[in-house]
């Protein structure tokens, strides 16, 4: 590819990603992801016409849970609990940031 070639990407509709896309992006096994979704550890996963989909928030959650399981040998439920807390923390940080802007 030439250095000055400009690539034009396509926007993924509504930022919903399939299990395979999330798995590839987070370098996890699609079966790992499917198992976790079926166990209810991804509360925002949606089944659209029989296909499981996750938003980009799910992408971050998958990455966090995978690291927790790998680095700390956390059982999936504990990894999900920590991911819940981190998401809560993200939300609070956003709100604090919002208040600072006002």
């Amino acid at each position: 590819m030439l250095d000055d070639e400009i690539l034009i990407g396509s926007l993924i509709e509504d930022s919903w990603l399939t299990i395979e896309q999330v798995a590839a992006a987070c370098t996890v096994d699609p079966d790992w992801l499917l198992r976790h979704i079926e166990d209810g550890l991804f509360p925002n996963a949606e089944s659209i016409a029989g296909v499981w989909c996750l938003s980009t928030t799910g992408l971050l959650r998958a990455r966090r849970m995978r690291e927790l399981e790998r680095d700390f040998d956390a059982v999936p439920e504990l990894a999900a609990l920590v991911a819940d807390l981190l998401e809560e923390l993200d939300d609070l940080r956003t709100r604090v940031g919002d208040r600072r802007l006002r």
């Binding site: 250095d3 000055d4 070639e5 400009i6 690539l7 034009i8 990407g9 926007l11 993924i12 930022s15 990603l17 938003s55 980009t56 928030t57």
Partner: peptide
């Protein structure tokens, strides 16, 4: 070199 289209928002892919 990637062309970012108008109308993108955070979290979009």
């Amino acid at each position: 070199n990637v062309r970012i289209p108008q109308g993108v928002y955070a979290g979009q892919i």
